[in-house]
Nucleic acid binder design. Sequence first.
DNA 1: TATTTTAGTTTATCGATGTAAACTATATTT
DNA 2: AAATATAGTTTACATCGATAAACTAAAATA
Lengths: 139, 139
Amino acid sequence: MEKISTAEFEIMRVIWANQPVMTKDIIEILHQTQDWSDSTIKTLLSRLVKKDFVVIDHQSSKYRYISNIDKNQYIETEMKNLLEKVCDTTKMKIIISLIEDLDISSQDLEILTNILNKKSIQEKVECHCPKGLCDYEKV
Amino acid sequence: MEKISTAEFEIMRVIWANQPVMTKDIIEILHQTQDWSDSTIKTLLSRLVKKDFVVIDHQSSKYRYISNIDKNQYIETEMKNLLEKVCDTTKMKIIISLIEDLDISSQDLEILTNILNKKSIQEKVECHCPKGLCDYEKV
DNA sequence: TATTTTAGTTTATCGATGTAAACTATATTT
DNA sequence: AAATATAGTTTACATCGATAAACTAAAATA
């Protein structure tokens, strides 16, 4: 999958939060946090369009940008990719560490509890690492 | 923090799983999965040493490499960085999605349940996004 | 110790990313 | 329609990452 670079992500943030939005506004909003020239922002924006993360909404003969991917979906996918890099036996432990730092609403807790109740719990989770590439006993 | 690039990460995998390990073995193991020349592997290895992710274990006058960071710790940090990019109100929802795809052992379930029980649950989690940069109502 | 192995270093090329000036085109307003 | 504001494109350059050849150094072994 194409990736969104760090700088490009800052553009995406603005689009996600304000779409449909025009260049002028993107520039204005970013000037509050980034010390970038207008040109830089335009370059990044055009790269995002080229990568198809952003599309142009051509209503009323104006250029207004809208995102072509869901932010949370994108982050979730990236997180999944990271999780794939560790042994199956360790994934849940990492998730638990993340949860320790989060605020939880009663609603989310309920959803989570439901999922946990429905899940089939195993005595032991199997490691599926390729030979010579597992480290779970060593970490 | 310095980052481990995609290619470098493949070297780290081998080191984590086989440390202390010497270049020859790293090369041999990687040849099973990567179509890289020996040179490439050596270059990547030297960059990792330079970035201090890997150090040399100089026992018995041999070069043996060992990692200087914990793998799970590294992945966890990267995941935290990703989570920081979304609104506080959404973080837990993403984590829940991740959990849906994971196998859970009874032990991990117990740990998680304990943590959840101890956590103070809020009626609603507050959004702390900077003005004009939140999208939680729009996603 | 002379010869092989195995390692480590230097140098290089190519594509992606960060950053931006300059130039062209299209809307909007006068 | 002319003038101005806004947008979009081209070009550029420096740095970083992926990839690797070539060369040097240090172990291991014959």
